[in-house]
Every structure is written in C-alpha cells, then in structure tokens.
Design a protein around this nucleic acid. Structure first.
Lengths: 219, 219
DNA sequence: ACCTGAACACCGTTCAAGT
DNA sequence: ACCTGAACACCGTTCAAGT
C-alpha cells in the first residue's frame, strides 16, 4: 500500500496533444532547433522512441506545431478587400517571422491543419469581395501565401543567428563593389537594389501580387 | 630514399576549389544531405577539421556549391523582353529543381557569387529593355528570384523524398473533405485550388509578378 | 497497445598538439 | 600556416524486450 503523502507530480500520460503542447513551449523558449525528439522526450520524462507512437516523424511534429501557432493570425482586419488581404498576410508573415525556422518547414511541407485552412478561407472571402474571378483567386491565394512564407524565411533567418549581419554585409559589399563593365545594370541600380529594407518593401511586394492577380487571367 | 614505383595516386593538396569541386560531385551523386564536412573530409582523405581552413562553415560551403551550379542557368533566351525574363527564370528554377535542398539554402542565405550576380544582371537588362522604371526593376528582380526560389523549394522537396506523395494526398484530402459550412469559399473552389499542378501554374505565377511589377510604382 | 533502453549510424565544430 | 586526432555535445530512427 503506497503511502502517498508528498508525491512528486504524477508523470502525465503521453498524448499527441501533450507532446505538441510541450513542443510549442520549447519552441517559444528556445527555438525550433531544440524541438527534437530527444529533447521532447526528456521534457516529458520518457525515451525518444516512445514519441513515435503519436507522431510519425520530426517533420510531422513541426507541421503540427506550426498549425498551432497559426491560430494567432489576426483575421479580423478592417477596411476594403485589399486592406483585408494585405492585413491578413502581414499578420501571417508576422507570426512566421517570430519563428523563422518554422516558416522554413512550412515551405517544405505545406500545412493542412485547421488554422491554416481558416487563413486560406479568409483570404478567399476577401478576394471574392473584390470580385476577383474564382480561378485567379484560387491560384492567387497560393501565390500570396507562398510569397508571405518565403519572405518570412528570408528575413527571419537573417535575424535569428548573429552571422546574418555578416551576410548582409557580404551582400552589400558584393553589390557595392560590382564591376560596372561586366554588370552595368546592376552597378547603376546599386542604390535601389539595397534600399527599402523595412516594411515598405514587404507591402510593395503584396501590392505587386494583388495587382498582378487582378490583371492576369488563368489559362 | 623512397623507391617510388607504383605509388598510390598522390594525395592532392587541399584547396578551396578542390573542396567545392568534390562537394559538387557528392551533391550530384547523392544529394545535399551527404555534402557534410565529415563526408567531404573522408572523400579528400583527411579529417573534417582540416576543411575549416578553407571554408567558414557548412552554410558557406553550400552557398559556394549553389553558385557553382548557377553557372548552368541559360541566359541566352530569344524573344521580346517578357519572354527573356520568363525564360531566364524558368531556367533558374529548373536548375534549383534538380537540387531542391540547395534551393532551401539559397532562401536562407542569399547568394552573392559571380554566377548569381550574372543572373541578376541579365534580368535587369531584360526589364530595362521593357522600359520598366528603375526602382520597380530593382525591387522586382528580388521578388522574381524569391518567387522562383520558393517555387523550387516547394515543388522540389515534393519530389525528393517519397513521402511527398503522402503529403500531396494529405493536402488533397484536406481540401476535398473541407466542411462547406465552416469554409464555404474554400469548399466551392476545391477544384480550382488543386488544378494546374504542372508548368502552366508556374508560368502564370511569373506572369502575375511581371504584370504586377509593371503596374505598381515604388513608394 | 504502449513503453523502454540500447544501439546504429550519423552530425558540426573546437582544440591542443604536431609539422 | 596548415593539418590532424580526439573530444564534446548532440541528432533521428529502429528494434527487441518488457508490461
């Protein structure tokens, strides 16, 4: 008969939801690089092999974590249809920018979770309001989300590790020091190429896509 | 005095160029996952630590390999400026599609090598022919190459590993089986969302971007 | 069915010691 | 300056054995 005064907190039963919740915690605290099977197992006081009952592999785990975070995307943007499309995409990008390594995995294995589908639905609704033809809207949403994700990967990683500054400098000096004989256009557009690193360039990118989608019919 | 009949092929001196050449070989034969410091060292008959004299880290190595391969991009496309832009981008995408894992690394650490700069120069020249304003051309090239790279990552990875078929099926059933009450737009656009998996969709994407760039002035 | 420990087959990077 | 072996601190995944 166990005398159970002052027991250590009972080891909670392993569940898929519990594993994903722990993964989100580790992600927020230490980044995706630490969201490994071994580390999660340690956190859950078990062995890595046990997790494979609930999760197919690391990629599937990361996809589940991503969908969880996509619940934070703000879908209630005010304004006309264009402002709504841009606003949703900016919110989506902002979430991914907080976890650039997750953005990377989103690009590799396209998400299919509830929260992701909700984002897609909201974008389709806004495009419908804008009277964008169905075919263009369907393909366009794909383009918009691909661009938002790629932007997050590109900018996010830059911030994540410290040698991104080195890299910006490498790019900058590569463009600055380009030979005007061999790369005349590039040399004369140096300034423009490197300008507008901030949000202005991101907004311009979304505008380009929206204008293009509106003006380009599907084959 | 060494009697040197029948020597084993002399171990070649370690150079940066030699390391990168070996990396390209391994990449072509077995994919980027095998292009590791340890594996390359083994191939070059030395220890992994020796490579760090010539290469800062794995990321820098992969960037160098990528630029090497970008020498294969076809820049001599015939036709008007739009055809040239699309053609160069399609060739660029095709190269990355052969090595999707390299495309992934291109997105993370933007290339700055000679071959990459040549691609940029060619695109700028074509846009200039099309009388695209300088500011739009400069930012536009970035957008076009980001899209091409992201497309390669997205499609390429699908082919690389076998469980990409599972994934397409997952996406397909997720979209097919979506609840018409909660996701009305998505449900009614099911067919369009999943259509045009081939090259038509990629070409449409480039057209959207070109049209958008032409029609959207920079702030 | 689920859980576990141990094993297999790897990684990147650093460092002291040699040449 | 360059090269090396060994070490540190990790990975994902599988599998036989247990409960």
């Amino acid at each position: 008969m166990p005398t159970s005064r002052r027991e250590r907190p009972a080891k909670p039963a392993l569940t898929r939801a519990g594993i994903i919740a722990t993964a989100v915690e580790v992600l927020r605290a230490e980044g995706l690089e630490k969201v490994t099977m071994r580390r999660l197992a340690q956190e859950l006081d078990t062995g890595a092999a046990s997790l494979y009952v609930y999760v197919r592999n690391t990629a599937e785990l990361h996809a589940a974590v991503l969908d969880e975070l996509l619940g934070e995307v703000d879908l209630t943007v005010a304004g006309d249809w264009r402002a709504r499309v841009t606003g949703i995409l900016e919110s989506y990008t902002a979430v991914l920018l907080r976890y650039p390594s997750l953005a990377r995995s989103a690009l590799v294995s396209w998400p299919t979770g509830e929260h992701f589908l909700t984002v897609v639905e909201s974008l389709l609704a806004a495009l419908d309001d804008g009277l964008v033809p169905a075919g263009q809207a369907a393909w366009g949403v794909d383009l918009l989300l691909l661009h938002a994700t790629a932007t997050a990967v590109e900018h996010g990683t830059r911030r994540e590790s410290l040698d991104r500054d080195d890299e910006w400098e490498a790019l900058s000096t590569a463009v600055q020091g380009v030979s005007p004989e061999r790369f005349p256009h590039l040399a004369s557009l140096r300034t423009e190429m490197l300008s507008g690193a901030g949000g202005g360039r991101m907004t311009w990118g979304f505008d380009v896509l929206i204008n293009g989608i509106v003006h380009t019919s599907v084959p």
